[in-house]
Design a protein around this nucleic acid. Structure first.
Lengths: 103, 103
DNA sequence: AAAGTCTATCGTAAATTTGCGATTAACGAT
DNA sequence: ATCGTTAATCGCAAATTTACGATAGACTTT
């Protein structure tokens, strides 16, 4: 594993290192996409806090937001999500077959 | 995914959220076990800093240390490592086959 | 043009993290 | 008993994270 990959993996892991952000990503995985407001309704923190967590996930590259006035629609950033998956699988020593990953 | 699992996953992810800690775990995965000093030799940070990162990994449950005076031998905490694997795989939507993790 | 909706950003405070040098603790060897 | 080795812990400073309310910006609708 290259140094760059270690950095990238740590970056992703750090982004996942908060329960609210895990919850956001889970929600996005289920719903495919959602607005900020949907998350504010569901999560036990203030709107500004949700926004901040979304920003961190976006900065880490795990999600992307599409402005859809006056709302913003978020979804998983598929390409980077796959990269994250690959890095985690590699690191956790999970062996791949073909398309997904299997042990 | 239960709330407790979300918390646990976030805890593990947080522990992985630093390049030095990733490097430590990688080293442990390769070497099976090692002393603190081995890591100090390899990592670009001070001894006290390495010790601190080891403490965090231990607190997160990912490693365990066996005192072997005057050294301390660290290794991956296999049981918890498997739990972490399972949680990450589940979260990242990685499909399993058989023996190790299962969804 | 004014009002309303939705969300990002600002300002702030508290808590946590990161890193270091110095010290301490534990133990074996002399 | 003293010395040497190894590693944890302490004390500290700087940076980052977390959370909130308040404000500001973008755009629709009235």
């Amino acid at each position: 594993m290259q140094e760059k990959e270690v950095q990238q993996l740590a970056r992703f892991a750090k982004a996942l290192g908060h329960p609210i952000r895990i919850a956001i990503l889970q929600y996005l995985n289920r719903q495919n996409s959602c607005f900020t407001g949907d998350l504010v309704d569901v999560l036990p923190v203030a709107q500004s806090t949700v926004s901040q967590h979304l920003k961190e996930l976006k900065d880490a590259g795990l999600i992307s937001g599409e402005v859809n006035p006056p709302k913003v629609k978020y979804c998983i950033h598929q390409e980077n999500w796959e990269i994250a998956k690959a890095l985690f699988c590699n690191f956790l020593d999970i062996h791949f077959d073909n398309n997904t990953c299997s042990v």
